[in-house]
């Protein structure tokens, strides 16, 4: 399989990365190089093989559903580019 420039632009949109036409064109070539490289997996017989879900045989650890941490709104917004009264501030979303 290979991608064309429109697919690259569509995927970039999905990934929320702005790309110029020139960048999209360069990336089309690079991504096709990578896709061509992974194509060799087609040679592997995977019939009846289960997909890997965990490399270590261990049952998922569970914990009690209770609060163990909190009351640190100040810490949470401390690194925000813009914040106000412990809220993250973003451009207007709804009119």
């Amino acid at each position: 399989m290979s991608v064309d420039i429109d697919t690259v632009k569509r995927v970039a949109r999905l990934a929320r990365i702005k790309v110029s036409d020139q960048e999209a064109e360069r990336m089309t070539g690079e991504l096709n190089g990578i896709l061509q490289f992974v194509e060799q997996l087609g040679e592997v017989d995977i019939s009846g093989v289960e997909p890997m879900t965990s490399v270590v045989e261990q049952t998922m650890k569970k914990r009690q559903d209770k609060v163990t941490d909190g009351n640190k709104a100040g810490d949470i917004v401390a690194n925000a580019p813009v914040s106000e009264d412990n809220f993250f501030v973003v451009p207007k979303v709804v009119e």
Partner: peptide, 15 residues
């Protein structure tokens, strides 16, 4: 939004 760089845009998706 939560940390690091922010480049402004005409709306939130653009940002």
């Amino acid at each position: 939004v939560r940390y690091g760089l922010r480049e402004s845009g005409k709306d939130i998706i653009d940002m």
